[in-house]
Amino acid sequence: MITSPSSSARSGPNPILLWMFSSIGKKTIVAATGILLVFFVFGHLLGNLTVFLGPDVLNAYAQKLHDLGPALWAIRVGLLGILVGHIYFTMLLWKENQRANPKKYIAADPIKTTVFSRTMRLSGLVVLAFVIFHLAHFTVRVVDPSYLVMRTQLNGHEVHNVYAMVVKGFSNAPVVAIYVIGLFLLTFHLSHGISSLFQTLGITNRRIRSNYELAGRAIAWLLFLGYVSIPISVLFFGLGKGFAQ
């Protein structure tokens, strides 16, 4: 009879921990948190694209989010937890993978691996830096404190003027450069990540795998185009001209 080893050196005998800290368990957690982050990136893009529908629509959308109150905080804390879990488990994998293959070939050959898959840690860490900058810029508004006092009237209420903030923010070329670079690296990350997560979760077979790879890359680039359209429109095509206070 096949007897499963009762415990492995890396984890205790608790079956949940045994799963979580097994090779496949860690990968599954990275993939599950990854897909949740991808859903967020999608939703966030849809919300942001309201900028093209004019100041009132974007401001109303932003106000709706803020009116969620405690629910908004629950979402924020949840997202933070997902991000922390994603990064924590990828770093565990990274450490173990370095230990599992410390001596590289002197005559190194990439053997069919893609530049996207080889740069997941680098692209991920740049995305992390970008996310921190983005939160400081538009959520905490410490990059330019003038955003804090931008107010406008909406249906008789005074609300934060998100539209003016976005237009002013993206009228600054170095800031736009940071956004384009950050989003480009996110695209790199997702060019491998989206197809990879289906393999990790086991939703695959040998016929469909190459389709996942194409579709994953296409989705990653569509997200890129969707996101960069906003700063590029503001900086180069005069979107919202005159609204920045």
Partner: peptide, 11 residues
């Protein structure tokens, strides 16, 4: 895992 093989990154 115990033998020290790494984790798959889908390379």
């Amino acid at each position: 895992d115990e033998e020290g093989f790494g984790n798959c990154s889908n390379y």
